[in-house]
């Protein structure tokens, strides 16, 4: 059976995948970039299912430096920088995985504007998105 690595800060995606994608995938879950990389070093995956927002994650586990982001983008405002990193965390983790050589298909459940999705594809290769938890559509995208 193919392996699906779910990357999220809660359990909504994993619960969904175990209920609706279990015929196609063995599901494992990582809650941060470092955990995903550790798991992938131990055993590869065939596809990734990403959450985008990580507003429940411990700030110390996020990809990105809050202080540097605050200085670079938000005039030193750490609160806004943290929210930015939380809101974009799935994409930032994807960047980390791609940098480490993990090129598997990645699917987000998020209503991205088309221009943003095109940008993600340009940067990170096989990236797709669906606006809702549609198991049939997600399964098809993960299997490309």
């Amino acid at each position: 059976m193919r392996r699906l690595l779910v990357i999220e800060d809660g359990s909504e995606y994993s619960d969904f995948a175990r209920l609706y994608l279990a015929d196609e995938f063995e599901v494992t879950t990582a809650r941060s970039a470092s955990e995903a990389l550790r798991m992938l070093a131990a055993e590869s995956a065939d596809a990734f299912l990403f959450d985008l927002r990580f507003d429940r994650a411990e700030p110390g586990t996020l990809v990105g430096d809050v202080d540097a982001t605050a200085r670079r983008l938000f005039g030193g405002d750490r609160g806004r920088a943290l929210r930015y990193l939380q809101d974009q965390q799935g994409a930032l983790i994807l960047a980390e995985l791609r940098s480490a050589g993990h090129a598997q298909p990645a699917v987000f459940v998020h209503d991205f504007p088309e221009r943003r999705l095109a940008n993600l594809r340009q940067l990170y290769g096989s990236v797709a998105a669906v606006a809702s938890f549609d198991a049939r559509a997600i399964g098809a995208l993960l299997s490309r």
Binding site: E12, F16, Y20, H110, D111, S132, F133
Partner: peptide, 15 residues
């Protein structure tokens, strides 16, 4: 609103 309600409210219903 789209994320917190729109995405999650139909996670089961959609399938």
């Amino acid at each position: 609103l789209a994320h917190d309600v729109g995405k999650y409210v139909a996670r089961a219903a959609r399938n």
